[in-house]
């Protein structure tokens, strides 16, 4: 195992993150604050509570999930796509590094960045709402698993993408809608039965529900199912990466 290479990739990627800290860190803080102003103050003041949770607090897990999922996906996809685009990937391919080590380095860095952003948003939300976390360990576990699994997904997208348009396509067209429609800002119990049934097909719904349970002990689906869903999703991403590793798909001709 080339641990030195994993460390090098990880810190090189993290350096990119801190080099652009304004964009990396301030942007999520500002957009979260805007969500609180719009949803929490303007709209939330007209909604008393959802499932016994004040609306301002209710949206916090969904907001964190929204940012964490999009950030880990885009960070990981960009991290591997950029060297492909500039051609500097030659170095990774000619180094005594296997695909597993490269994945750990890139995905680990992307997941760390998303985790940092998630925690910043959580911290920011304390300025706006009263928040207690019922199950801190479960909360952290859900957060970590989400960062990791979506970073894996992003890594796959980055390898697959042939241009910048494709790079943005999946996060924009699939992940963002799934997060919004997965109950980030509402409980699915508010929906008509038909839409409740359709929401059950949305994998992101299980993650948000589980994450919200860790905060408020209130969930749309049992927490065990949420955990199983994220495990299946992580497993699928790992299988896809293992296949890429074996075949060299889009990486090594």
């Amino acid at each position: 195992m080339n641990y030195q290479a994993i460390r090098s990739i990880y810190f090189f990627e993290m350096a990119r993150f801190f080099r652009t800290y304004r964009q990396s860190l301030l942007a999520p803080v500002i957009s979260t604050s805007l969500y609180f102003v719009v949803f929490g103050a303007a709209i939330g003041s007209r909604i008393n509570s959802v499932e016994g949770v004040p609306y301002g607090a209710f949206i916090v897990p969904g907001l964190i999930m929204l940012s964490v999922m999009t950030q880990s996906t885009s960070n990981a996809s960009f991290g591997i796509y950029f060297p492909k685009f500039t051609g500097s990937i030659y170095e990774l391919l000619s180094a005594p590094v296997n695909f597993f080590e490269a994945t750990v380095g890139y995905v680990g860095a992307a997941a760390t960045k998303a985790l940092i952003i998630g925690l910043i948003i959580l911290g920011t939300s304390y300025f706006f709402v009263d928040l207690t976390i019922a199950h801190p360990f479960a909360m952290v576990a859900f957060l970590l698993l989400t960062c990791l699994s979506f970073a894996l997904l992003g890594f796959i997208i980055g390898i697959w993408a042939g241009n910048f348009e494709q790079l943005n396509l999946i996060p924009m067209l699939i992940i963002t809608p799934l997060v919004f429609l997965g109950g980030s800002f509402y409980s699915t119990s508010m929906l008509p039965p038909v839409w409740q049934a359709i929401t059950m097909l949305n994998p992101v719904h299980y993650l948000i529900s589980g994450f919200r349970w860790a905060f408020f002990e209130q969930a749309d689906v049992p927490v065990g199912i949420s955990l199983a869903a994220i495990a299946v999703f992580t497993g699928l991403c790992l299988a896809a990466i293992a296949w890429i590793f074996r075949t060299g798909w889009r990486i090594r001709q």
Binding site: Q4, A5, S8, F12, E91, L92, A95, P96, V97
Partner: peptide, 10 residues
């Protein structure tokens, strides 16, 4: 430095 690390050297 990155290149050196990538090749497993401290």
């Amino acid at each position: 430095r990155f290149s050196r690390g990538l090749f497993g050297k401290p």
